[in-house]
Design a protein around this nucleic acid. Structure first.
Lengths: 205, 205
DNA sequence: CTTTGGTTTAACTATTTGGTTAAACTGTAT
DNA sequence: ATACAGTTTAACCAAATAGTTAAACCAAAG
């Protein structure tokens, strides 16, 4: 996927698109400002004219990526709908997001891994995902005898794992199972329904 | 210079241990030879005396890590034991491995992501994990009506996702759920049984 | 004692890389 | 035409970094 040569794009947009591509592919340490300039079709001087430093540019790209990675599913979590429907909606929503941004997860996870301390404060300025609401609902459903007892942590981690991990381990998975990119995407498409039903079958009483 | 039972590590071992730590923490691009030398308690000259280049050293560390990441479960996969027991053994085995090497997955996955082409040829010189055996067994179990129909890819990816992903997303998970390292490890310990039963409940007919 | 292999010290080279600068150029709006 | 923001060119600087080199050091083996 090369850069789109839109005359419509402003230079700033071209730079950000290029930076996105290079940072996501190479990481902060592996990315070169020259590469970003080349990819944006401009020169280094102009790149620094728009963004003073590599760090500034990286911050923008990373923040944007992190936001995509931790999507705005607050409404979903807080919505007053049955748990199984909530699971179905969550999984479909999340896998859709991953299919649209397949390389965001490994990028974000790796940069967070290299600098865990900074991450927590920077990305979520105190506002964490409303995980408590969902956890409470799970507790209620367990007490009502609708689903088997399970710690909300495990249920959520299981769901999220199955949504994200295939994209993180994509090159290995496609190599082991000898899949083309098209076949991989078909399987991911299937997972939108499959993972939800897998989870529901696993927990329903 | 024959048999010297080293109470202490040899210099080569010290270097490899240091390299492991630094590469796994910082990645190939982020790692500094000086850091590795410091961590090994030696100097840069000696470091290059033992390992000619950064690449050579990285190769060793990466290969070792990749081997741990894709463990020798061939025997397990080929063993003629019931599918549910196989799942239980696999999950426990794999999560144990992850608990012993918690930072291997993100390291390997990220380096593979940065260079997918090289990976396939380098790590598995043609010899891939015997995934076909396991897939065949799943097919047989489905036809025998013991488990619900599911593509072996999805079943395996689901299992592996739930085993590995918590470690890949560890800093985020611990931050969202406000977990100490001890609490995190307790939860991972629980998962050895929990994930297996989760999978079995999800697929049993 | 002498040799020898591992080790240190410390300086050095070559290259990469983030970032800067100044001058010239270009199109558009005033 | 003129002014100006955006852009290019090309050189440059300073720091970091991989890798080298040579001399000296040291402990153990012959």
């Amino acid at each position: 996927m090369v850069e789109e040569l839109n005359k419509d794009q402003t230079t700033e947009q071209k730079i950000l698109a290029a930076a996105r591509a290079v940072f996501i592919e190479q990481g902060l340490a592996g990315a070169r400002m020259q590469d970003i300039a080349d990819r944006a079709g401009i020169n280094k001087a102009l790149l620094h004219y728009y963004f003073r430093s590599k760090e500034k540019l990286f911050d923008m790209v990373f923040e944007e990526a992190a936001m995509k990675f931790l999507p705005r599913i607050s409404i979903l979590f807080e919505a007053d709908i049955p748990i199984f429907d909530k699971i179905r909606t969550f999984v479909e929503h999340y896998i859709n997001l991953m299919m649209e941004n397949p390389f965001i997860p490994i990028f974000v996870l790796n940069e967070v891994h290299k600098n865990p301390a900074e991450f927590i404060t920077r990305i979520w300025g105190g506002r964490m995902p409303p995980v408590r609401e969902f956890a409470a609902q799970i507790q209620r459903e367990i007490e009502a005898g609708n689903i088997k007892p399970i710690h909300p942590f495990h249920l959520m981690i299981n769901m999220i794992s199955m949504c994200i991990f295939p994209f993180v381990g994509r090159p290995i998975a496609t190599s082991v199972f000898e899949l083309s990119n098209e076949q991989f995407m078909v399987l991911m498409e299937q997972r939108k329904k499959l993972v939800a039903e897998f989870v529901i079958d696993a927990i329903k009483a």
